[in-house]
Simulated scan of single mutants.
Amino acid sequence: MRLVVDLNRCQGYAQCAFLAPDVFTMRGDEALLYNPHADKAQREQVLRAATACPVQAILVEDDPDDASEAASSRLTGAGEGLSSVR
């Protein structure tokens, strides 16, 4: 999974840091630091963080290697209600 955060759009609400603290952290009041290559084990937390972003500044992209996993989760209904692209 690959993450891209539009830092021009980010307003520092820190919802992502609250929901996925191993991936997103705040430095000071406004500077967001994040791991652009989050671990697959953190997928659910990252998707919740992206969904919770008030300004929709977080884009989550699937790696080609993860495509078969994403397809199987759609078939089984896993992750229902969450979008992997923002």
Rank of each mutant, 00 (worst) to 15 (best):
residue 69 E to D: 14
residue 46 V to A: 06
residue 64 P to E: 10
residue 61 E to S: 08
residue 65 D to Q: 13
residue 37 H to P: 03
residue 48 R to L: 14
residue 54 P to W: 04
residue 53 C to Q: 04
residue 26 M to L: 14
residue 36 P to N: 06
residue 15 Q to L: 14
residue 68 S to H: 13
residue 4 V to K: 14
residue 76 T to H: 11
residue 54 P to K: 09
residue 37 H to A: 13
residue 4 V to A: 10
residue 3 L to F: 04
residue 30 E to P: 00
residue 45 Q to R: 15
residue 4 V to N: 11
residue 70 A to G: 03
residue 62 D to M: 08
residue 50 A to Q: 07
residue 49 A to V: 00
residue 31 A to G: 01
residue 42 Q to W: 08
residue 23 V to H: 03
residue 58 I to C: 01
residue 1 M to S: 14
residue 10 C to A: 06
residue 79 G to N: 08
residue 53 C to W: 07
residue 15 Q to K: 14
residue 26 M to G: 06
residue 64 P to F: 05
residue 72 S to Y: 10
residue 15 Q to S: 10
residue 26 M to A: 08
residue 51 T to C: 06
residue 68 S to Q: 15
residue 51 T to V: 10
residue 51 T to K: 15
residue 11 Q to Y: 07
residue 70 A to H: 13
residue 9 R to N: 07
residue 70 A to R: 14
residue 67 A to M: 12
residue 80 E to F: 14
residue 39 D to K: 12
residue 38 A to W: 11
residue 11 Q to E: 14
residue 21 P to G: 01
residue 82 L to V: 04
residue 12 G to E: 03
residue 37 H to N: 15
residue 56 Q to D: 07
residue 39 D to L: 10
residue 43 R to G: 06
residue 56 Q to K: 14
residue 68 S to V: 15
residue 9 R to C: 02
residue 8 N to L: 04
residue 82 L to F: 10
